[in-house]
């Protein structure tokens, strides 16, 4: 593509890459948008950490039920085949390797796949972690969806995370507005670019990049 992706376009591309029939957890914030681009015939089942499988779209009007919310505490709906369960079961699904894919936002991802997304380390910031660390270690595949640079222009794919870590070597793909990255064996593969080139990205990120998907 010839220009950087909008948030909606990023969500479309993540949705495209989620295998049919997967059990998927979408993190709060931007990743929630991915749900809008998962067609019903793909049979993806959404998990929400607060205790539900088979989560439907956000509720509106008369559908709103304060007892039926997602991880971002927004009202949602249930789909046929949905189930409810308590928190220990919900996190057994996450930690126990039962979810195929999770999609999270991030402050930083290292070339080794380390993830930092819960705390900026600012001493005045109030830390909050939620289920991010459980997803990082437990989901079979961890996708990150974020802008490639922060608002000050700092790269968010980095040689080493400087923010406090969420999990070690857990991220396998990073979807950004400028490129899609695959992380494998400490190598960073660029599978798609949007309005830029691998050469330009390598210069801006100051990390070695390999054009094309990882060989396997």
């Amino acid at each position: 593509m010839s220009s950087p992706l909008s948030r909606a376009d990023m969500a479309k591309i993540v949705a495209r890459d989620i295998p049919a029939g997967s059990y998927v957890n979408l993190g709060i914030g931007q990743p929630t948008l991915v749900a809008d681009y998962l067609p019903p015939d793909k049979h993806v089942v959404l998990h929400t950490e607060n205790g539900m499988l088979g989560m439907g779209p956000q509720a509106c009007g008369d559908e709103i039920d304060p007892d039926l919310t997602n991880a971002g505490k927004l009202p949602v709906t249930e789909l046929p085949g949905a189930s409810y369960f308590h928190h220990a079961d919900s996190f057994a699904m996450m930690r126990g390797g039962h979810l195929d894919v999770c999609v999270m936002g991030a402050f930083q991802v290292s070339t080794a796949g380390d993830l930092a997304n819960w705390h900026t380390g600012d001493p005045d910031a109030i830390p909050a972690v939620g289920g991010a660390m459980d997803l990082a270690v437990g989901a079979k595949t961890v996708y990150v969806m974020m802008t490639l640079f922060d608002k000050d222009g700092n790269a968010k794919v980095v040689p080493e995370c400087t923010y406090p870590l969420t999990g070690l070597a857990c991220v396998s793909r990073v979807y950004t507005d400028l490129a899609v990255f695959q992380l494998k064996n400490d190598q960073v593969y660029v599978t798609e670019t949007f309005g830029t080139t691998v050469g330009e990205l390598s210069a801006r990120l100051q990390i070695p990049l390999v054009a094309g998907p990882s060989p396997d």
């Binding site: 996450m94 930690r95 972690v129 939620g130 289920g131 660390m133 459980d134 406090p164 999990g167």
Partner: peptide, 30 residues
């Protein structure tokens, strides 16, 4: 501050008479 799954499992462990458990969640983090 406790990762959410560790919070749930620590509560579950108390109710189930478990003295503690080893979890991968949080390894290598503050």
């Amino acid at each position: 501050l406790v990762p959410q799954g560790n919070l749930a499992e620590r509560i579950r462990a108390a109710g189930a008479g478990i003295g503690g458990f080893y979890t991968p969640t949080g390894v290598g983090t503050p």
